[in-house]
Design a binder for these strands. Structure first.
Lengths: 219, 219
DNA sequence: GTTGCCGGATTGTCGGACAATCTGACTGTG
DNA sequence: CACAGTCAGATTGTCCGACAATCCGGCAAC
């Protein structure tokens, strides 16, 4: 009884962290920017200890990095990290693809819905931020087929890492139509249980994404 | 020049966290035990804010859980979490197995070494704590074949979660010899590039581990 | 060019304080 | 006896101020 009732817990720390996330995704904080504790405490109007805890959250998410005694800075994705992230993504999404057949129906239809959503936004020429969100959601739904929330949490962290530096270089994505078609194709193959083909296509898709992202990184 | 030189950073927070980890793995803190901030601060001889940060680390590792306004407690593994952990482990180790052929030589020999180590300890009848460590190391080495440090970090977190409740129920493991043989068998199959067979064996192996661990949990 | 040293900035840790929140028991009411 | 209201105690969430430890950059000395 009374399921579906939740109450979001609004702690000061969480709100502070959220504000920082927003600023980072919005591009107001470039990668590499140092985040001084006192400055943030003043700007956000909270105590330094609160800022400290909020930064701890972001560190756990991989959005910022802390160098002992030297403070934290907005995480900058170096090529090694980028390739590591993509290796991890490949593993997780491949596992999702292999799990398609045995996955519960709601996960499968969630994936379908995310693809539809992506296609709708792509066709409508929505704002790039929304488009990126929808794109990420598709990949998230693929990994979600594994049915493990712990894996999904990692996927979110990985997406967070790349989305951050992606916010600055997302204009490159001129070929929205192709992108949408590619993802539709993946879903299509899944529906037909062409597992090995999906895996192959997935690898190529992610490989391409990595190189294009890596190229964008080098500037 | 001067590579290989490192200096471990000893922050008070890290030491406090380490002490808590030790106590939990040693069984001095049962799952479910509440961890009061003031009490810990007194016992450890540090400030409450320091304890708070240390707990933050452990929370990120999944070793303890925090309920807002009610404090943190040593994590207790419920069946749902257990099955989730094993689903994730299966995905990661399966990916490791598939990556064997393309993995760099040092990762492969690291796996061999871990199996040897496990066998040596198993034959010598070493203390159970060491044995568990070696066992976990084998599985870690399998997942490491994927070559992603982010995946490996997740593997460590997963092992942390189960090792915790395992510390209390590890005496069940009477058949060390069989266990060692099973892992040797896995390696053997890998060496012969019997990928699909490895995957199958891995699933059974992990499935068995889950049920036995689940049974131990129910007491 | 290397070494030694200094000053400013920032973090790491401390201790104390207080409001907000939760728990559990107690109480009254029907 | 079931139920709602109340209250005290315990604990967390957040704030503040303080100070030592550490790091950086620059400058002087050799």
């Amino acid at each position: 009884m009374y399921d579906s009732l939740t109450l979001e817990h609004s702690s000061t720390v969480e709100r502070a962290a959220e504000e920082l996330r927003r600023a980072m995704f919005a591009g107001e904080l470039e990668p590499g920017t140092p985040l001084r504790e006192v400055g943030l405490a003043d700007s956000l109007g909270v105590a330094r200890s609160t800022v400290r805890e909020a930064l701890g959250l972001l560190i756990a998410e991989g959005l910022v990095i802390r160098v002992p005694n030297r403070g934290v800075a907005v995480a900058a994705l170096d090529p090694a990290a980028l390739s590591d992230v993509f290796r991890a993504r490949t593993v997780l999404e491949e596992a999702g693809a292999r799990a398609w057949a045995g996955a519960p129906e709601d996960l499968r239809s969630a994936l379908r819905a995310s693809v539809d959503d992506y296609a709708r936004l792509g066709g409508a020429g929505a704002d790039p931020q929304q488009l990126t969100r929808a794109h990420i959601e598709v990949h998230r739904a693929i990994a979600a087929l594994t049915g493990s929330e712990r894996l999904l949490a990692l996927v979110d962290a990985l997406h967070g890492e790349i989305r951050l530096t992606l916010g600055h270089v997302d204009r490159v994505r001129g070929n929205v139509r192709e992108q949408v078609a590619a993802h539709r194709g993946l879903l299509e193959l899944l529906e037909r249980d062409r597992t090995e083909e999906v895996v192959q296509a997935l690898r190529e898709h992610l490989g391409g994404a990595e190189t294009s992202l890596g190229a964008a990184l080098r500037r």
